[in-house]
Computed example of a mutant assay.
Amino acid sequence: MDVGRSRLRQHWSVYAALLPMAATVLFAYIGTVLWSVRISLSNSRTFPSDSFVGLAQYERLFTSERWMVSVHNVLIFGVLFILACLAIGFLLAVFIDQKVAGESVLRTVFLYPYAMSFVATGLVWQWILNPELGLQTTVRGWGFENFSFDWIVSQDKVIYTIVIAAVWQASGLVMALMLAGLRGIDEEMWKAARIDGIPRWRVYASIVLPQLGPSFATALVLLSVGVVKVYDAVIAMTQGGPGIASEVPAKFIMDYLFGRANIGLASAASTVMLLTVLAVITPWLYARSRANRNAREA
C-alpha cells in the first residue's frame, strides 16, 4: 500500500513540475496565437477592436502590392537559400568526412558563422557588397577598372545579396547535420564498395544519399522555418530597399505593427506566416511519428 502511495506521489510530482511549462505553452503561445487570429478578423488599428470584419483584412493583405512583393521575394530567397545550403552543406560534410587533417578546426570554422547573429552577418555583408567600400572598390583597386558588383543597390538583384549572406551563415548547420548522418553509415559498406570496384560518386548517389534522408528532412525543416521568419539580415543589409525591392513578410508585419499602427493587417499577415510554418512542419512531424511507430512495431 505504501509503495503504491509513493508511486502516486511521484506520478503527481512529475506533473506538478511540468505545470509551469504547460501554462506557458497554453497562455503565452497558444493564447497569443488565438488572440492574433481574432485581431486579424477585426478592424483594429492602433489598439485592439471588437469590430468584426471577417476576412476583410486578408483581402486587403493579398491586394497589397507591398505584401505581394514581399511574398515574391521570400519565395525567391527560400528556394535559392534552401538549395544552396543543402548542396554546400552536404559537400562540406563529405569533404570533412574524408578524415582530413585539422578536422576539428575545419568543423569550427565552417560552423562558426551560424553562431553569429543575423544582424552581425548582415552588417558584415553590407560592408563587403557596398559598391563604395567593399568588393567592387577593392577589385577596381587591383586594376580591373570595369569590374562591377553593385547588386545591393540594384532593385532586380538585391534579394540575391541577402541569399548570399544567409547561405554563408547557415551552410555550417547543414554541414553538421550531414556529417552526423555520414558518421552513422556503416564502414563495412565502404569496404564492400571498394572491393566491388564501385565508383565513389555512385556510392554517394545510390547508397549514401538515401540513408541521409532524415538528415536532409531535419535540415529542410530548419531552413524552411528560417526562410519564413527572415528579418534581421534584411534590416541590417538593406532596410527592405532599394524602395521595397527586398521587402519580406516579417518586415511587412513589423512595419505595420509598430510603424503604421495597423495591428489588424499585421495580425492577418502573421497568421498567414503561421499557416505557412504549419504546412512545412506538419508533414515532417507526421512522417517522423510514423517512422518511430514502425520502428517500435519492428
Rank of each mutant, 00 (worst) to 15 (best):
R290D: 03
V280Q: 05
A291H: 06
T46M: 08
A279Q: 15
Q155F: 03
Q169H: 04
A261T: 04
V280A: 07
D255C: 00
V248W: 01
A28P: 15
A205K: 09
V37K: 00
W127Q: 13
Y231N: 05
P199V: 01
P210G: 05
F62G: 11
F90I: 03
Y286R: 11
V105S: 10
V234G: 07
Q169V: 02
F144D: 13
V221L: 08
P210M: 02
S40Y: 01
L220W: 10
T121P: 08
F95W: 11
W190L: 10
G184R: 04
G226N: 12
D255H: 01
V234F: 02
S64E: 12
S6T: 00
Q239N: 06
L177M: 09
F52H: 00
Q211F: 03
A22S: 11
L222W: 06
T138E: 12
L220K: 09
I159V: 15
S117M: 04
A298C: 13
A250D: 06
G259L: 04
T138D: 12
H72N: 11
T32K: 07
M1V: 09
R194S: 08
A236K: 02
F77L: 01
D186T: 08
A22C: 14
F95N: 07
A101Y: 05
S267V: 05
D97P: 06
R260Y: 09
V105L: 15
E103R: 15
V139W: 05
N73W: 03
T138S: 14
F147I: 06
A192H: 05
I207E: 10
R200T: 13
V105C: 10
R107W: 04
V94T: 14
I263E: 05
K229G: 13
A193V: 12
P131V: 05
M254L: 08
A120L: 09
I244R: 11
G143C: 03
F95S: 12
V53E: 00
E187C: 01
T282I: 13
R5E: 10
S148D: 09
T218W: 07
I235F: 07
R200Q: 13
G4P: 00
L223E: 14
P20E: 03
V100H: 05
S246K: 06
A120N: 10
A84N: 12
I263N: 02
I235W: 09
G197E: 02
V208G: 09
W142H: 10
I39R: 02
L274F: 13
